[in-house]
Every structure is written in structure tokens, then in C-alpha cells.
Amino acid sequence: MNILLFMIGCVFTHNIVFDRLLGVGDAGKDRRVEVAAVYGLAVCAVMTLTAVCAWAADSLLLTPMKLDFLRVPAFTLIAILISLLGQVCLGKVKPAWLEQLEGCALPVAANVAVLGVALMNAEAGYSFAYALLNGLCSGAGFLLAVVLMAGVREKLEFSRIPAPFKGMPITLISAGLIALAFIGFKGMA
């Protein structure tokens, strides 16, 4: 039961974008919903794998050798390597999806949320299962957020918005309203 609550918490209550405020700039970029879904899936995959590898590196190497001050560079390197590996694999399996990521998966590794989850796991001292679930469910939360935001932006295209508020300001204000709705999940987990 605890695990289920933890998972719901990661996806909804502590949504990585709307509650933990990681990867907001990335989620708010102007994309079509289909492109947003591919990007969200890519971030979800890289986040899960980075969370697992970072957990392994932290608990098997960095902590026993008292090198935990190297966490940030080590986790960044892991995220870079995983995104490059993912790019090669995706190029072989689904080239069409890779095209939607503009042929380069490295910006996925530069997403704040990817490194954020790995660091969060290390600082909270999660076990392997929780680190894996945190990566997977936070990734699912990011996918949900990025698709929601892309949908909102598509609607905003046809709205009359004061010129200075076009683009990011109105996106942030709409995101604020979505975040307000997400407060409704509080008390669930």
C-alpha cells in the first residue's frame, strides 16, 4: 500500500513540474501535443535509467569511498551518457521519433528534472526500489505535465492575449491554474 501511495504521490501530489517545480521551462516550450508526448516519453525513459544508474553509482561507489561531493558531476555524466545511448537506440528502432526530438537527445539530459530526481534520491537515501519508482513515476508525472501544457498552448493560439503576455507569461499563468488544480490531489498521498 505504501508503495502505491508513493507512486501516486510522485505522479500527482508531488508532480515534478507543478509541485516540485523542476523542468518548468522545458515543459512550457511551444510544442504540438504529439511532439510533447514523444519528448515526455524520452525524458521519462532517461529519468528512470538515470535514477537507477545514479543510485548504483552513489551507493556502490561514491558513498563507500566518501566521494559524495562528486555527486553532481557524476550524475550529470551518467545523464549525458544515457541520453546519447538512448539516441543511438532510438535511431535504430524508431527514427521517426528521433526526428521529432530534432535528431538530438542531449537536451533531454540537460533537463533539470532528470538530474533533480537523481539528486533527490541520493539526498533522501532511498532504497533501490524507491529510487527506481521515483524515477519512473516522476517521469510519468513529467509526461503528464508536458502533454497538458502543450494542450493548453494549442488552445491559447486562438485566444486574444495582450501582446506583452504572449508566449511564456501566459503559459506560466495557465500553468499556475493547473498547479492550483493539482492541489486537489493533496491529502491523497
Partner: peptide
């Protein structure tokens, strides 16, 4: 949520 709203308005 308040942060999103304040930053959005300030940017505008």
C-alpha cells in the same frame, strides 16, 4: 501555484 501566477504577471 502562486509562484507561477506572480512570475507570469511580472514577466508580462
Amino acid at each position: 501555484a502562486g509562484g507561477f501566477l506572480v512570475l507570469g504577471v511580472l514577466m508580462g
